[in-house]
Design a protein around this nucleic acid. Structure first.
Lengths: 264, 264
DNA sequence: TTCGATTGTTCTATTATTTGGAACCTAATT
DNA sequence: AATTAGGTTCCAAATAATAGAACAATCGAA
């Protein structure tokens, strides 16, 4: 093996599927519909090849193409996702506990899991606000600027954290967003405290407190969080919820051991 | 080619992707996690081949495998879906109109599109409850037993309806569920009325009224509906909403012509 | 309109991946 | 220890994907 630079790009070997997923990601992560030429420029491939690949994705409903020849994510994804969400055991087990936490705090409660270097939000319970924001569920956010993300990192072995951080590129969302160094330092603190804060690190005006959740083998790593506007949620106020949120996390882990443990 | 029987199974030619999507569908549509052997039995493939295919799907995050070797849908699907949902133009355009309809009726409002022989729900506005994203959204339901489905069919050319109905297998959900004949008959009625009812055809105790929405080229076909419990929503009550719901559909179509029309 | 450039589609020999089948593990069961 | 079921690895043969060019269709400007 010739590991030239520190961290090799680590290309996955998933054959044809991998190439198609790159395209799917490309179109899905774009701001809007993409023309054939846009995709051609972004994906380094011959035109003929790209054309067939896109056709296959469209035929399977993973992409859609409109009358003007622009590609967008396909609705088949919604069906697949709604089924996988509805059945997700972690989410089902956590649900009542999230609800309880929402009742207690009156603020928005999130459930997230670590996948790669992102936190994927699995569920969300909002307060009474008539404002509808379900955009959050399913969203993948960077680990380094979310409470759940930092909480999750805090229970991983130091070595894994270091490896993961090395793979990260830090985008400075706000003045408080972490750098690699400050993140690693805070993880140590969180490890001792048992909970993590987000001090407007992702979005100005938004604070949160989170507690980690993990399975024994670390096959599942994530967390719960309580989030709200900074003007209402002072750091003192947030700190008051440290105990209840950690307790909530404990209860979810306990419920998981029953619900997800080895059968029989 | 030897087109033996009347309607060939019409196998899609999407090469490797097609084969993988069959597996993804299989696991996603199952009631719970599947063992390797379960999948082996359902998918008619050699073990070695299946093993590699599943590995690739897992590596790409489309499937997940737990400690006991059981396969479930992967969370990557959530991320892909949430992005495609958030950006969907039809949904964005319709949103305010759905909200208005919800305010007017006080009952649950759905937005759906026709995909193949199913209706995929794109959005949902409930009474006071904050919406749980994937509770209904993303779900694919059969055309023949939903208000939106029947409304959608009513604006398709008769020939296309007949072809579509021929592809359908009718599951008798309730005593009122349609058969092919009764469905075709009702479509004719809906065509004239401009709106469709669901008279407890999918679920006992649930009624609904729906109006069709379509683009000029029929590249987009779907509808809006108002749904609620039968004890509260008598057929008379539902009928009162025929005008407002059709008006709502009209407004959405108008907004689409502006929002989705040919650029410039 | 005509020319030229841009964008999208189809075709085919070459190349790479997938396939099928068997052999090989591993953990549980008798 | 032997047997079975469940899962994984291997490799020659079959198949599908690729690259590149040729072909259409569309668009803009002269």
């Amino acid at each position: 093996m010739s590991a030239a630079k520190g961290s090799a790009p680590e290309r996955r070997d998933t054959g044809t599927l991998g190439k198609l997923m790159v395209l799917l990601d490309l179109v899905t992560h774009a701001d809007g519909p993409m023309r054939f030429t846009d995709i051609l420029a972004a994906a380094d491939q011959p035109r003929g090849t790209l054309h067939r690949q896109l056709s296959h994705l469209v035929e399977e409903g993973l992409l859609e193409i409109d009358a003007e020849g622009r590609y967008s994510p396909g609705l088949r994804l919604l069906d697949l996702a709604s089924r996988s969400w509805a059945r997700n055991e972690f989410r089902l087990v956590a649900e009542p506990h999230l609800k309880a936490l929402q009742d207690l705090t009156g603020e928005t409660v999130h459930l997230g899991v670590l996948r790669g270097t992102s936190i994927i939000y699995l569920d969300k319970f909002e307060g009474q606000q008539p404002v509808r924001m379900y955009s959050q569920i399913g969203n993948a956010s960077p680990v380094y600027c979310t409470g759940v993300g930092k909480a999750a990192l805090s229970i991983l072995p130091r070595e894994r954290v270091r490896a993961l951080v090395a793979d990260l590129s830090f985008h400075r969302f706000t003045a408080n967003t972490h750098t690699a160094e400050s993140l690693l330092a805070e993880i140590e603190q969180i490890r001792e405290q048992g909970h993590a804060f987000d001090r407007e690190e992702h979005e100005i005006g938004i604070r949160c407190i989170a507690a980690p959740i993990w399975s024994e083998t670390l096959s599942l790593v994530g967390g719960v969080s309580v989030t709200g506007p900074a003007y209402r949620l002072t750091m003192e106020k947030l700190s008051e919820w440290a105990a209840p949120i950690q307790q909530s996390a404990e209860r979810i882990m306990e419920a998981m051991r029953i619900g997800l443990g080895p059968r029989r």
